[in-house]
């Protein structure tokens, strides 16, 4: 039973971190119709900034700067690069391909800088743990759950209660109508990208802190686990991204936790499990768990 609770808590914490990334995918997709394949590299960029700055600025200062810088980078990439290709839905497909190129450039440079190093981010939790009844959980993971919940709540509130959120939702529903109603599509889009960038930098903290040993060149790739989460949630649905992330996090933790019982499925099934879950969900609900009309864009 302890083992089960252990796995569930692991999974929830993992899911909370994935949710930050998946929500980024969703916000960018909602804002621009572009699937950002460079998201993992943006995350790595944010993490790298924290790693090199935390000695001088302290963790909080480094984090604040990294979040702002990553947001600025993501926003600028969209505003000054992708938007040049046009704002209509057709060019969104081309821009999706462009993000693959951006990813290669960004990743190659960051990987060159990081090399084989393992960079600590100087986060305040260290390897401290908390006993919750029979299970032990890392403080960094508890922090991940708390921070993700607060941040995701804030993002939902932004969507719901600000004029930017309204513009974004309007643009996602119907670009042309939104433009005619006076929505400044370019700004709304870039705003969405900036927000997603900020979320990615935040996610980097939790992906690189304990139980992981630090930021590595491959940390960005871990973010791709959030990809099936965003898709199975319905890609254009923030609530879906949240649910999808928790589902994927739980699946991963449980499959690895019960690997010996599941060995009929072959070793290393944990890596495939998120995609298997995604396929199962999409078979039953082709537009994803919470996908509505918005998913028609796919």
């Amino acid at each position: 039973m302890t083992g089960f609770l252990d796995n569930v808590l692991n999974g929830l914490a993992l899911g909370a971190v994935y949710a930050l990334v998946a929500l980024g995918f969703v916000v960018m997709f909602k804002a621009s119709g572009v699937l950002n394949f460079a998201h993992g590299s943006l995350l790595l960029f944010g993490g790298y900034l924290i790693a090199v700055l935390h000695d001088d600025l302290g963790f909080a200062g480094a984090l604040a700067l990294a979040v702002l810088a990553t947001a600025a980078l993501a926003g600028a990439l969209d505003r000054f690069l992708l938007q040049r290709g046009g704002l209509d839905e057709q060019s969104a497909h081309i821009q999706t391909i462009v993000t693959i190129g951006i990813d290669i450039l960004l990743f190659t440079d960051l990987a060159r800088r990081i090399g084989g190093d393992l960079l600590p981010l100087g986060d305040p939790w260290g390897d401290a743990v908390t006993e919750l009844g029979p299970v032990t959980v890392a403080d960094s993971r508890l922090a991940a759950i708390v921070v993700s919940t607060v941040v995701i709540g804030t993002v939902f509130a932004l969507f719901r209660f600000t004029s930017w959120g309204l513009s974004l939702r309007a643009a996602a529903e119907d670009l042309e109508a939104a433009a005619l109603m006076g929505v400044r599509l370019g700004r709304v889009r870039a705003g969405g990208w900036a927000l997603a960038g900020a979320l990615a930098a935040l996610a980097a903290v939790f992906l690189a802190s304990f139980p992981a040993p630090g930021l590595e060149r491959t940390t960005g790739q871990i973010a791709l686990h959030a990809f099936p989460a965003a898709i199975l949630g319905g890609l254009a649905s923030p609530v879906g991204a949240l649910a999808g992330s928790l589902l994927i996090g739980l699946t991963e933790a449980l499959v690895v936790g019960y690997q010996s019982e599941l060995h009929v499925l072959g070793e290393g099934f944990g890596d495939v499990a998120p995609y298997a879950v995604m396929l199962l969900v999409l078979l039953v609900r082709p537009t994803g768990l919470f996908g509505g009309k918005g998913a028609a864009r796919v």
Binding site: G3, N7, N10, A253, S260
Partner: peptide
Amino acid sequence: VVGQKIKATDTDLSAQVSALRKE
């Protein structure tokens, strides 16, 4: 021997540790 196969991109071994502890 209880084996746990991992990949180079796995850097959080929480789930593997849970499984090993259970064994």
